[in-house]
Design a protein around this nucleic acid. Structure first.
Lengths: 350, 350
DNA sequence: GGCACGGGTTGAAACCTTTCAATCCAACGA
DNA sequence: TCGTTGGATTGAAAGGTTTCAACCCGTGCC
């Protein structure tokens, strides 16, 4: 087919055809074309066919901007993810996608990559595009723009973070309980000196998971200094490796016999560097991660981890968002899922 | 602030304010508000301030649909990814994002999740939204809709797949060479019986990588049956595990001494199940993966892999897309990057 | 034969922003 | 004083779709 308008041919015109052109070609009115597009049942079969053929011939592509301008709301959702390279978030995204698909909505993913600035840019664009709603794992749950967006009419659901205020729905996992489960498991195995590997401090998850860990230690009658802090700059594999070197470097008398990591990326990095430096896992160092990403089980020393129901998280968040978008007497809700410990070789009693 | 319009207050109105409302409140004309938005230098400081204040007071959110309708092209790109949970693609996406950010464009990610149907839905929506351009790793590079989209005026660049036709730009890695590098490495280490683990057959990558492998074997003077086919249903971790069980089940006399996997997910699964089944890596089975995703290095037996320049792939693809979108005498280009073997413990001579 | 009914179709108005030619006005030079 | 200049501002028109009240006309009923 040709690329520029050749009158009478069957190719598309130079500048894309609109409903008007389609109407002219099919010999019907604008309104009818629109009906074919939006309420095909109201149009007689014969007319519909003619219109559809005209569309095909002209290569008609509906102009979403114009549609939206007139019709109000779009049929897309967006998930602003904190880190697209962390499998945890892509699994959450998959849960969202499935739920969105069922509701016949498209999902756009936006990666803030931990940058508050990029997050703001995305939020603004999404607002300007009048998306049905936004799911977000925010860099900082207290970001004021989040409230602003809601106030201006775009529903926002917070995923994997909690917020005390009731201006949004949120869906998260009980991180304190998760920390508790990890430590109880290690204590059961006889560990009395346990590293907590995570940071930076400003991440709520890190604080909550540590808090759960501390509480569990206290309940077990162990002193507070049974938990050895090993700080990381971020929750990444390379920071985990880094932490591993520090732990391996400790004199064996004072070295912890187990490590609880704030997430699986850190745990995998830790695992890797320990093995590389001659520490046996779990004999010299037992390791517990958090999230239970797929790669945790696939590590050659499969990783014990605290599982979050990732898909569920996404699914439930989407349901809340849709309710908020469509149900006039929607009530905000803070959903808290319960994590679960999955024991694997990295903490096996040997 | 209140949520419904309270005359004279400072809160936003019930239904969001438009430029008209802003103009009224600031005591200027429509055009001036638009100028503040689009050509702030043409507006006197005093007026600009007044307008900006009015915007803030009314909680004005620019309506992108209306803007687009009038102004033509949007300032967003989209990357339709084949599998958002495969770290390879998220790394590519990150490269794209960086390049897009530099050009002051937003990037939306869409996950086709290997479904041709979903891919089509996304392509159509993106077209309807008049995005600047689309980057895509297609389920099937021969999908006719890809040509259709281009013909109708939306630039499309194909990422990580090649296509003989010249209707798009494409950016990929020389998979044949990659396969060759992997096998040459294994042959150098003395392996004479090597499994090729991958599938399904319809994936171009699988075919090309095998082709390279075969060529390298031939060059080394080894018979064609030195390459043992181990088919997978998909390039996933669980399929890799599956393949591992089959390999471990072979009688040790005929079992390959090395495996070349079509990607790292498969290799990680293979690694995991081999270790679990008592096969030592690399002593009993050396393993080479493909992609060199971060988790390859982080595996407890760090994985030898064929590295693809993932970020580069994304960056270059974006540059091509922007050129196509802006440069009137753009020429389509097929870029082929060179892969590189990264040797790690999974093939170390012991 | 007249009338009510209703499915199918019509076309003008509305959605909100950007654009651009026209206008305004203050300052300046002659 | 008048004309000119140029920066600031104006407002009508345009952009493509959806909506909705109105209309048309064939059918069935009384």
């Amino acid at each position: 087919m040709a690329r520029v308008g050749d009158e009478g041919g069957t190719a598309g015109p130079a500048r894309s055809a609109g409903v008007k052109d389609v109407a002219a070609r099919a010999g019907v009115s604008l309104g009818t074309v629109s009906n074919v597009l939006n309420r095909p049942d109201r149009v007689s079969a014969r007319t519909r066919e003619r219109v559809e053929q005209a569309m095909a011939e002209l290569g008609f592509v509906r102009n979403e901007s114009a549609r939206l301008l007139r019709a109000g709301r779009s049929s897309t959702l967006a998930y602003v993810m904190l880190d697209a390279t962390n499998p945890f978030f892509t699994d959450v995204a998959q849960g969202i996608e499935r739920a969105a698909e069922q509701a016949d909505l498209s999902l756009f993913l936006c990666n803030s990559d931990q940058s508050a600035e990029r997050e703001r840019v995305y939020l603004t664009r999404l607002q300007e595009q009048r998306v049905q709603g936004v799911l977000i794992t925010p860099v900082d749950p207290d970001e004021p723009l989040l409230d602003e967006v809601v106030r201006q009419g775009t529903p926002v659901v917070i995923v994997d973070r909690v917020r005390d205020v009731d201006s949004h729905c949120s869906v998260a996992v009980d991180d304190v309980l998760g920390g508790r489960l990890a430590i109880e498991h290690l204590v059961d195995l006889g560990h009395q000196r346990i590293a907590f590997v995570g940071g930076p401090e400003r991440i709520g998850q890190v604080r909550d998971r540590r808090r759960g860990a501390q509480a569990a230690l206290a309940d077990a009658g162990l002193p507070a200094d049974a938990l050895v802090e090993v700080r990381t700059e971020a929750l990444t594999v390379s920071e985990g490796r880094n932490a591993g070197e520090r732990i391996a470097g400790m004199p064996s008398a004072t070295r912890p016999t187990a490590a609880f990591c704030a997430n699986d990326l850190v745990a995998l990095g830790l695992l890797q560097s320990c093995v590389g430096l001659g520490l046996r896992v779990p004999d010299d160092l037992a390791i517990v991660g958090f999230d239970d990403i797929e790669f945790a089980a696939a590590a050659a020393v499969p990783l014990t981890s605290v599982r979050q129901p990732r898909g569920q998280l996404g699914r439930r968040a989407t349901e809340l968002l849709l309710d908020e978008a469509t149900n006039p007497d929607h009530r905000h809700e803070q959903v808290l899922f319960t994590p679960e410990l999955v024991a694997r070789a990295s903490t096996r009693r040997s």
